[in-house]
Structure formats: structure tokens, C-alpha cells
Amino acid sequence: MSQTNFKLVECPRDAMQGLHDFIPTKLKVEYLNLLLQVGFDTLDFGSFVSPKAIPQMADTAEVLAQLDLSSSSTKLLAIVANLRGVEDAVKHEAVDYLGFPFSISETFQQRNTNSSITQSLNTVEEMVSLCAKNSKKAVIYLSMGFGNPYGDEWNYEIVEKWADVLVSKGVEILSLADTVGVSTPEKIGTILPKLISRFNRTEIGIHLHSTPAERIEKISAAYLAGVKRIDSALKGFGGCPMAADDLTGNIATEDLISFLNTKGENLELNMDKWNEAIALSGKIFG
């Protein structure tokens, strides 16, 4: 199976956004330019959000202007949290995907985007329309897709209901996101096959957060469920700043690569560039 069939989404934006000390723009550019040469399908590189909300991403437009896309087939994804962010992001020709966190937990939607689920649905509709007009695609994350810590109701039916609503609004890529690391192999193995078979014209991905000990079993469950789009970050850095758990980071890309290699997947990655990126990551993440 070639990589065209398996989409690896590397997420340096998710890894960097919660860091307290501002990473110099030049260093971000150097790191992202290395990752662009590895051969990932997509790079979640930055976000067009309020600098007050995420100070680390205040230089996204500046970073974007310095990325070398000349010899990379990797597509660029930027996160947005409201319509203003959408309008900013679609102006940039180099951005292929706009990602929006649509939470199925009302509490988290308010905390994360300062809007209700209903308001966020309106944002998604306008976003899909603006993306279509500007040759972009919307990636909608079903955030808190495996449960939430607030006591908001969660079950498989709720996940399917919101997936149904979003697909009916024209969303072509849905990524089930475990914002706080509460997914289990059982949950992954139950909900993903349902979504993949029911929405067979929609690309279904997964964005997991995990403690290091549980990463491989979650990757394995997602793989067995038939998912072909997986988000991860080098060394598992990052995770949701709201999660407040130092151990709950992203899925580590090196774990994902090594798992897929054991399954005989042909990922066609440039491992020399990958190792250079790992070496440079120490300057960013300490």
C-alpha cells in the first residue's frame, strides 16, 4: 500500500502551541522546512487565531511566507477558530486545508472557541462555502469525540449524529479528535468502523492524544478499524493546553511510522530528513 492510500498528518502546530516561551520565527521556519521534506501527506503548521488566545501562533502568516514548498508535495493545514480566522486563512494560496475544532461537548466549544455548538455550526457552513470559493478544503475535527471531563453527555449515537449533520453541510473530511486522552482501543474499534462505513464518501481521520504507555494500542485499534488518515506529532510533543496533563500528548510520529512499517505499509518517507527534524526539535522543545 503506497502513501497515497495512507495519509500521515504531522502536527507541529499542535506540538508548539502550548509552549510558554515564544519560539523565534526563524527557528519555526527551519523546523517546518525540514518536516516539509520528509514526505508527509499534510503538515498542520500554524493557526489563524487571536494572538491573545494562542500567542505562540501570532507569526503564522510570517512563517508561511518563508516556507519552501518548491520540492515538497506535502499539503499545508492551518487551524481556525472563527469566521475571521477563516477569512484570513483563505487569502493564502499556499494553504490547502483549514481545520476547525467542532466540539460535541457544549462546555468545551465555549471554552475553546468562545461560541456555542449552534454558532459553530454556522461557522462551519460559511467555512465550507469560503473554502470552495478559494480552492481549499475544510477539515472538521469532532473534538471531545471520545468523551469529555465536564459531565456533558457523550455516547456513540451523539458522535454519529454530529458527523451526520456536518456531512450534510458539505464537510468532506472529518477527524475524530480525542482532546483529553480518554479514548480506548474499545471506543476506537467501535466508533470508527461505524463512521467509515456509514459515511463512505467522507474521508474519516483520527487525532488522538495519549499517554506514552497507551500509544501503540490506540494506533493499532485505529489501524484495525480501517482508518487511513492519522494525525501525530514528532516525539508526541504537545496535546491540548486545556487537558492539563503533562503525560497526555499527541501520538508520537515515530511510534506510528514504526507500527505501519511492521504492517508492511509503504510510507515513502525521507528518514534522513526525519532524523534531522528530530535533532532540531531539541532546540524547540528542550
Rank of each mutant, 00 (worst) to 15 (best):
L43E: 03
S115W: 00
S71F: 11
N5P: 05
V227E: 01
I158E: 12
D272I: 14
D88S: 13
K283P: 05
G286R: 09
L69H: 08
W274F: 15
C131F: 05
G46R: 01
L267V: 05
A81R: 06
E203T: 14
V180G: 01
H209I: 04
V80P: 00
L192F: 11
Y31E: 07
V80A: 04
F6W: 15
L19E: 09
G147E: 10
S258D: 14
L36G: 10
L34T: 04
K7I: 06
I251S: 01
S47T: 04
L76I: 08
Q37K: 15
S258E: 13
V165S: 08
H20L: 14
G145C: 10
V139H: 02
V29M: 11
G18P: 05
M271N: 08
T107F: 11
S120Y: 02
Q3F: 11
G205T: 01
F259A: 00
N270C: 11
S73W: 01
L166F: 10
G99N: 07
V227D: 02
S258L: 07
S168I: 07
K235H: 12
P185F: 08
Q109C: 13
C131E: 04
S116P: 10
E217Y: 00
I158R: 15
L98V: 04
I191S: 05
L32D: 09
L35G: 03
N33L: 07
